[in-house]
Amino acid sequence: MPHIEVPGASLYYETDGHVSQPALLLIHAGIANLRMWDPQIEALAADHFVIRFDTRGFGQTETLNVEFSNRADALAVLDHLGVAKATLIGCSRGGSIALDIAVESPGRVTGLVTVGSGPSGFPEVELTEAEDALFDALDAAYDAEDWHRLARLEVQLWAFGPLRSEEALDPDFVATAYELNRVNVVHAEEDPTPLPIEPPAFDRVVDIDVPTLVTVGEFDITPALAQSEYLLSAIPNASGCTFRGTAHLPSVERPADFNRVLTGWLAEHSL
């Protein structure tokens, strides 16, 4: 299995498509791993070089408990593969990492796509009562070190959304969402320390000058919806899309819709 050795870690990665095609770097959500992008690979690899990797604490990546930079890890993957520039596509925390890279290393980025993401340094957003209750349950599971319960509650909050019940959702999606996060439980007691970008991206996204697509699920939580609105207003060349009938993982829950929007946008901007 392919791994890239970086300081304090061995990053698992996969590639699809031909290296001569425009590069895409896919960065997964914090309730998933690189497998979340499986439904996109066939559509994207037809005319792109598609790169994805497991960030530290997720999937098949191995890490020591050291300080590290998520930005540096992502760029190390590109460097290892000889890719000078790529369109970054990130979901949730993956989108936040992509935004940090776009403001810190703009010369490496040709385009940017966020999915339910916000910039680092975004002000705290007031939660609804339902969201508050779900976060309280997460905190209780964390304090009890009940990692399997924590993983399930994370999926219920983010992937299903506070306004939807598991029973009302497609059973295949439910099973996939649980599995995407379940494999991360083995990393629960790892403690690598991510180094934040300084200053945060919040006040710097106005300088992003590449084509940007800001997407979010209709049933995502309040902060994600607010963050997407902010990105649309702050990034000069940004367009947006809200995926109906989805929450935090529209690319997993509605892959055909997501692929249509994404491939259309990439073609529109010759990326």
Rank of each mutant, 00 (worst) to 15 (best):
T15K: 04
G17C: 12
L26A: 11
N33G: 01
N33V: 02
N33H: 15
R35L: 06
R35C: 01
R35A: 10
W37E: 05
E42V: 10
D47M: 05
F49I: 09
V50D: 05
I51D: 04
R52D: 05
T55G: 13
F58H: 15
E62L: 14
L64K: 12
L64P: 00
E67R: 11
D73R: 01
A76I: 04
V77W: 02
V83R: 04
V83G: 05
K85G: 05
K85M: 09
A86E: 10
T87W: 05
L88G: 03
G90T: 06
C91S: 15
C91F: 03
C91R: 02
I101E: 03
V103G: 06
S105C: 13
S105W: 03
V109S: 02
S117V: 03
G121I: 04
G121T: 06
G121V: 09
F122M: 13
E126V: 15
E131C: 12
F135G: 00
D136N: 09
A144V: 06
E145A: 15
D146W: 07
R152D: 13
L153A: 07
P162A: 14
E166D: 04
E167M: 12
E167G: 00
E167K: 14
V174M: 03
A175W: 01
A175C: 07
A177N: 12
Y178S: 07
L180W: 00
N181I: 10
N181F: 11
H187T: 11
P194I: 02
L195V: 00
L195W: 02
P196S: 09
E198G: 00
R204P: 02
V205Y: 06
T212L: 04
L213E: 01
E218R: 14
F219Y: 15
D220R: 07
P223C: 12
L225A: 06
S228R: 08
E229F: 00
Y230N: 08
Y230L: 13
N237Y: 09
G245Q: 08
G245C: 05
P250S: 14
R254A: 15
R260K: 14
L266I: 07
